[in-house]
């Protein structure tokens, strides 16, 4: 530090300031260059991230506390009502699940007949979203499990209704994910009704995805369900992504104007599931 701290020895000049800022700018540029090109800086990122972890916990605490308070002050009657509702729901879900098991077995048999390999079931794990905002200009979220639990970059994240996003940065105990609505995110989908393949691009709005690459004569209507096609390799196939809510065909334009509403409640989820998908299954049948 500078020895003369008082206001008596020409306080306007702070020696070496220009040099210091120049050096810092150079260091920043070098850091950014390496960060952009390669992942050499993951170590630094993780170290600083671990230092910031307590701050994240503190910011998350009030929300967590509020949730706990709300849970612990609900009346017995409300709890009973909730229990009844959940039991009814469970009964319904179980009934559907039974049919699903039968269908799955049937599907496996058909696939065996066709000589294609059976799809392996994906492994999932529930993670909680931390109430911290990663970046205001991107649709990001932070989850409370990280590299320690086997989370990896590019991992798919879904909730009960559909695809939420994918992991982009993994810390030791937390991971950052990008939502499918982020303006920089695109994901390969297919129309569930007819298998039409296209790409769903995020718009930066939380409740809208764009499908910019569909020609005017494409067979798509309002209400069509889009599911992941599994072609990009990041997302396993068959998870619902969005429902088409607007199709505008303008004759002189080459592409139709199609947008869709994400199936998952992107701004309301509190718990998500991470998918450890099985290694890609080759669908090619062997020689006849």
């Amino acid at each position: 530090m500078v020895a003369s701290r008082g206001n008596n020895s020409n306080p306007a000049r702070i020696p070496g300031l220009g040099l210091r800022v120049l050096v810092l700018i150079l260091i920043s540029i070098v850091l950014m260059y390496f960060d952009q090109r390669e992942n050499h800086l993951d170590g630094i990122r993780r170290a600083v991230g671990a230092a910031v972890y307590p701050v994240r916990i503190v910011v998350d605490a009030p929300v967590r506390f509020w949730g706990w308070l709300a849970r612990s002050t609900t009346s017995r009657k409300e709890l009973e009502l909730e229990l009844g509702r959940l039991q009814a729901e469970r009964l319904l879900t179980n009934a559907r699940l039974q049919r699903l098991t039968a269908l799955e077995a049937e599907n496996a048999r058909f696939r065996a007949l066709l000589d294609a390999r059976t799809r392996v079931r994906d492994e999932v794990r529930v993670a909680e979203i931390m109430a911290v905002d990663a970046n205001p200009y991107e649709h990001n979220l932070v989850i409370d499990i990280g590299r320690r639990d086997g989370v990896y970059d590019g991992q798919a994240i879904v909730d009960a209704d559909g695809v939420v996003g994918q992991v982009i940065k993994t810390g030791v105990m937390t991971a950052q994910a990008v939502l499918i609505s982020d303006a920089d995110h695109a994901l390969p989908v297919e129309v569930n009704r007819n298998g039409l393949r296209t790409i769903a691009v995020g718009t930066g709005e939380i409740d809208r995805l764009d499908l910019p690459f569909l020609p005017n004569n494409a067979d798509i209507r309002v209400g069509d369900v889009l599911v992941t096609s599994g072609l990009g390799g990041a997302f396993p196939a068959g998870y619902p992504v969005a429902v088409v809510n607007l199709v505008t065909r303008i004759p002189q334009e080459p592409f139709a104007d199609v947008s869709a509403t994400p199936a998952a409640a992107l701004d309301q989820v509190r718990e998500v599931m991470l998918i450890w998908s099985a290694p890609p299954v080759t669908e090619e049948a062997p020689d006849e």
Partner: peptide
């Protein structure tokens, strides 16, 4: 740098900007 890590931006981006305005 702390801001860059918590935002997940390029390492050095906010650091550079803050250093310049504080300069």
């Amino acid at each position: 740098i702390v801001l860059d890590v918590s935002y997940g931006t390029l390492l050095g981006q906010h650091a550079l900007a803050l250093a310049v305005i504080v300069f």
